[in-house]
Amino acid sequence: MNTTARRAHSAPDATTADPAGGREADDAIVELREALVYDLDEGFARLVGAHQAVAYSVALRTTGHRADAEDLLAESLLRAYRALRGYDATRLRELQPRPWLLTIVVNTRRNQVRDAARRPRADGAEPPDRPSTERSVEDRAQDAETSDELAAQLARLTDVQRTAVVLRHVVDLPIDEVAEVLGCPPGTAKSHVSRGLSRLRALMTPPDGVHTAATSRSNP
């Protein structure tokens, strides 16, 4: 297999992620923090530049829809900005930008889904601003835009499993950052990832049983 190609795909913010795929490079983090302390708006611009690609990937693969991903990204970033405004220099100097930002993306998405579920449905009339949150992730994953089968199957995982798999294997976060974003211990995060992968493997197994390894696992 070609791990180099995978790295290139899975570390879209390669300039701030260290080559071993671990924590962001310390220098880049320190510079970003100092920029935020010195001039919040300029520092925020750098934060967006450094992390928009990874945040977009997470938004796209958790919503399953490009327009939703763009809206989610913009809303999350504005929330991030408003949160940063309330942080003092000490707090800013402790910031772990990537997991912190991805936590906001994941929580913002959770709130959107919850709000959409609560909102009463008027006979087929969709609110103009956020029409797609009215529909399930599964429905939208089957849109023509998401033709990729795996992307569609991701939508069939539970929210926490999907998020765990996306963070760990789509954007290549180390497990401790996955745990930080999910707000759980690393062991729990690991098990969400494992279960998500098992489910995906079962879902991806065609009925004709070509993938014998996976078939034998789910039907011993």
């Binding site: 995978r6 879209p12 977009y56 795996l150 760990r168 290549d172 995906l200």
Partner: peptide, 25 residues
């Protein structure tokens, strides 16, 4: 850290997942 990476299917699966990291348009 993953327990389920020891067969051909999961290797393919992980590669495919990594390929889903699309750069923003």
């Amino acid at each position: 850290t993953d327990d389920l990476t020891d067969d051909a299917v999961s290797t393919d699966l992980l590669d495919e997942l990594a390929n889903l990291a699309s750069p923003p348009p």
